[in-house]
């Protein structure tokens, strides 16, 4: 990883940061294996540079961007966000990135665009989880957001953490971070972003629709069918003894900023 030049932002939670060690060794990134330690151990061969990201679909100016040019062009902010995994653990991570809106504005979305679809790279030769007999899901990993969610100032494309470019296991060189949604919405190593008219598929929803919805908003009142979402364990907090369990906050604590996006919607039906 290389150091990044960043500017501060007003979006930061005032809670102790999860250590860089934990943020970079405890990951869900099935392209490198299903175990939490797999991504940090198995991603050494992955080449995140040079890298381009194509933005197309219902836009006035479809373009392919070089990630390092984007980093040079757009101010990289430090955003300290809570990260809540659907598995009921959480972290506080100092991301470095820019609003997704800054990228979407460059391609001029058409009025007919209602959703944004994302796609992860497929490189079985560099990503051991994508090759071999045992593959947990079809590739590429895909995700989606409603356009207003994508344009929200909290939604960023992260290119770094802790002031350096993203380690491979965290989704190098560019990944989505939507802090009020469960972590699996944060698609990693993105190669394509497409503006579309209808709700795009998302990998976990396709795999197990009854457990993982399209919206995946953090919600302590809507449980996962197999476990409660009312509480979470903050990684690294209090260690082995003292469970570090804390109540999960509505929209992961970002209700003031995002609740209006879902006004009038039944959040039990749209989980």
């Amino acid at each position: 990883t290389m150091p990044l030049k960043t500017v501060p932002s007003r979006y930061k939670v005032d809670e102790p940061l999860t250590s860089r060690e934990d943020v970079t060794t405890y990951n869900n990134f099935y392209e490198f294996g299903a175990d939490k330690a797999d991504p940090s151990q198995n991603s050494g061969k992955f080449k995140p540079r040079p890298w381009t990201i194509t933005v197309d679909g219902l836009v006035g100016k479809p373009q392919t961007f070089d990630v390092d040019k984007l980093i040079a062009d757009i101010p990289i902010e430090e955003r300290i966000y809570r990260m809540r995994c659907v598995e009921a653990w959480s972290m506080v991570i100092p991301w470095n990135g820019f609003p997704l809106k800054a990228l979407l504005d460059k391609v001029e979305p058409l009025g007919s665009a209602k959703y944004v679809a994302f796609e992860t790279v497929v490189r079985p030769e560099e990503m051991p989880g994508q090759s071999g007999y045992f593959q947990p899901m079809p590739w590429p990993y895909v995700e989606g957001l409603r356009l207003d969610e994508a344009m929200h100032p909290l939604t960023i494309l992260a290119v770094g953490l802790y002031g350096e470019t993203l380690p491979n296991q965290n989704g190098a060189p560019i990944r989505l971070v939507v802090p009020w949604k469960y972590g699996f919405k944060g698609i990693k190593s993105i190669v394509r972003v497409s503006l579309v008219e209808t709700q795009p598929p998302n990998s976990w929803n396709s795999l197990q629709g009854s457990e993982y919805g399209f919206y995946a908003n953090v919600n302590p009142e809507v449980d996962h069918p197999r476990w409660s979402q009312a509480t979470e364990r903050r990684i690294g907090e209090s260690g082995f003894f003292g469970s570090g369990r804390r109540p999960t906050l509505m929209f992961n604590g970002y209700a003031d900023e995002v609740a209006s996006l879902y006004a009038g919607m039944d959040l039990r039906a749209n989980y």
């Binding site: 934990d22 405890y26 939490k36 653990w89 364990r233 570090g244």
Partner: peptide, 8 residues
């Protein structure tokens, strides 16, 4: 402290 990030 030898069981990683989520020892419990």
């Amino acid at each position: 402290g030898g069981l990683g990030a989520d020892p419990v």
